[in-house]
Design a protein around this nucleic acid. Structure first.
Lengths: 198, 198
DNA sequence: CCTACCGATCGGTAGG
DNA sequence: CCTACCGATCGGTAGG
């Protein structure tokens, strides 16, 4: 049983190895384009062995997304309260992402697949985007209350647009890394919305 | 031979039916997730029959993208010279897209798959994005020369950002249509970049 | 354009 | 965790 397996160091390490392999494969081939055999091979076991740890292909995907959320939650705790500091944190995150294309590929590919309502990660992304927008909205709203947003800027729309801009830039950056300055473009967007540049 | 087939009305119509079916299926399942059998079924033939018109799966994809470019080229001819009129045309295009989710799904899914350099549509998207950015850049540059852009706005970055914003909004809109005002968000972006609102 | 077929690959199961 | 297997599905071909 997994509840038991989880408690033993060897099983935990194996699970982590499998998840790490899955992140890489999903990033390269998407979810539907990946096979359990490919993930298993990279983790050094057979695909039947993988199914001992994750009983179905969907269960593996769910575990990948769960782990990612857990990592994000840890980072959130280090977060500053809503305001300018949060925007600087976003830029730092973008810089981190540019140095880790694999994670960016995973999310870009999965998010596009998961627009289909019957995709196993669909509900995850509905929630993911909702939470991201709300969190960004709170920072922009605080800045607006302080008069730090340019007139005409709706904090709700600015929040949606920052998230969307970030996603869209990632697609073009992954497609043509040399032609797109991801971090610079995000900076200019924030500056175009703020009274005082970051 | 296709060069001949293309000349006969019946063959041309069949080809068009297959391409229309392919657009729908690619939008729902992506390219790698689609089967020739599914496309053929929707076109009312067998998958072997489809392969009589398009000899491989890749050839079908190439034809889908070719047709799309041909349609775009027709629209471009109706285009105004670079300037404010072009920005209004973009908004009109976004309104059209909101009424035709299938086309949006096709592009969103294919673009994400095609970030992989060995994807058969990779080169297409490299060119597609490059051309789109250049075209948008020319409009923003003209506006900048006329003093219609806010200070600090780089027309090159504004062009990149508009395209990226549009793509990113489409993902969130496809995921949660009721929670995202695609056209409104694009309008606010353009207004945030212009001295005088659109 | 179809019927009939091929080899390859897929997710999942049995049984140890 | 593995070996061995299952039924289903894939892109593509032969031959008409």
């Amino acid at each position: 049983m997994h509840a038991v397996e989880r408690g033993y160091p060897k099983g935990r390490i194996r699970r982590e190895d499998i998840l790490t392999a899955a992140v890489a494969v999903y990033g390269e081939a998407g979810y539907h384009g990946s096979s359990l055999r490919e993930v298993a091979k990279r983790a050094g076991i057979t695909h039947a062995g993988l199914l001992y740890y994750f009983p179905t292909k969907e269960a593996l995907l769910a575990a990948v997304l769960e782990r990612r959320d857990a990592e994000d939650a840890v980072r959130e705790q280090l977060n500053a309260p809503p305001g300018r500091e949060v925007l600087r944190h976003w830029i730092a995150l973008a810089e981190y992402n540019v140095a880790h294309p694999g994670i960016v590929e995973l999310y870009t590919r999965l998010a596009a697949e998961a627009v289909a309502p019957d995709h196993p990660a669909h509900d995850y992304f509905v929630r993911h985007y909702r939470i991201a927008r709300r969190s960004a909205y709170e920072s922009f709203r605080v800045l607006g209350d302080r008069g730090e947003l340019r007139p005409g800027v709706d904090p709700r729309v600015a929040a949606l647009n920052y998230m969307a801009l970030s996603d869209g830039l990632q697609v073009q950056w992954l497609t043509s890394p040399d032609e797109v300055d991801l971090v610079g473009a995000l900076r200019q967007y924030l500056d175009s919305v703020l009274v005082e540049p970051l």
